[in-house]
Each structure stands twice: as C-alpha cells, then as structure tokens.
Amino acid sequence: MRDGAPMEDQNNQVALKIGLIGDSQIGKTSLMVKYVEGSFDEDYIQTLGVNFMDKKIHIRNTTITFSIWDLGGQKEFINMLPLVSNDAVAILFMFDLTRKSTLNSIKEWYRQVRGFNKTAIPFLVGTKYDQFIDLSFQDQTEITQQAMKYGNAMKAPVIFSSTSHSINVQKIFKIVLSKAFDLKLNLDEIVNTGEPILVFKQ
C-alpha cells in the first residue's frame, strides 16, 4: 500500500485524502459538490482559500471515506497548497477543456505540488466536456493531444468530465481507488478525439 493512505481497520475503515488543484473558474468546487452531494449549481462562487468535504462510501463491511480538499485557483491562495497536498493519496490536476491556458498552467501546478507531496498519485482531469464538444474539431484535437502529452509526462490517468452532465464524475474516484489500492479495473478506455477521454491503463 502507498504512503499517505491511512488505514483504519476499525470496522474496516479506509480514509483517503484527495486534493483538487488547478486554475480558477474551471470547476473544482463544482466537481467536489457534485460528487459529494450529487447537485450542480451554475453560479460561480469563488473559493476563498480552501474547501473541504467528506464523502463516505459503504461497501459491505468496508467504509471508504474520501476527504476532498479543494484549493482556490487564485494565485494568492498558493500558500495554502500544503494544506491540500500534504498527506493526499491522489491529486487531481484540473483544467478547463475550453481554455487552453488552464491546461498550460498544469505544468506549474504540478511542480508546486511535487514540492510538498512526492508520493501522491497525479490525475489529469479536464472539465466542462459538455462545452468542449461545441468547439471546432481542430481545437478538440489539439487540446486532446496536448492533454494526452501532459498525462504521459506526469504518468497520470487522463479523464475528461462534465460536472453539469454527470459525465465521468464517479469514474474519476473509482480510478483513484483502483490506483490507490492497485486494483484491476474492468473499465473500457475512451481514447477517440471528441469523446470524453478516459485513459488510465499504463
């Protein structure tokens, strides 16, 4: 088992801390709220500092607790990065599929996070897939290829998701679990441009 996955055997409790990192207004908080509460709100509310939510999943005798930490994307909150990244089992590096610049910032985010946590499993998550498919095919190809390149470099699974349309939201966290416990996932990958990319087998 990896470091930073605190195992509490009491009633088979498993706790995992997950950090959400990325530029502002890409939907980190939305994704967290969607996953934990199942709801989605169109309005933008800027995260001041850090958000934190717990999601419990009961499976027979085991209870998995995801502690999801979400860091505000503005540069002034960078000093709270250790709060989010320390002891995290997985870090989701997130970008907006409709804004290329947010993908380019991932490099810097990755560098920053690695300074605090060298063991966390990285994930590359593109958001707003529902808006992404309205882009021209050329743009879609470019962004997809760029994202795959980043994912390769980071040795990270690449997932395109849509919080508002519930695409690949649950799958992100299933992949996190499978990676954290090194379990075999019988899920098909999605690799074609224009489809919600799901690449996790390496």
Binding site: V14, N61, T62, I167, K184
Partner: peptide, 19 residues
C-alpha cells in the same frame, strides 16, 4: 477483505449515476 470489497465496488458499473 477490504480489497475485495473495493474491487467489487469499483468494477460495478451499476452503482454510479455517470451518464
């Protein structure tokens, strides 16, 4: 047992509301 449970959950495609 935990691993077994998680594996089962992860591979069960009916338990999420992803579209």
């Amino acid at each position: 047992r935990i691993f077994k449970d998680i594996l089962e959950y992860v591979n069960d495609s009916n338990n999420d509301d992803d579209v």
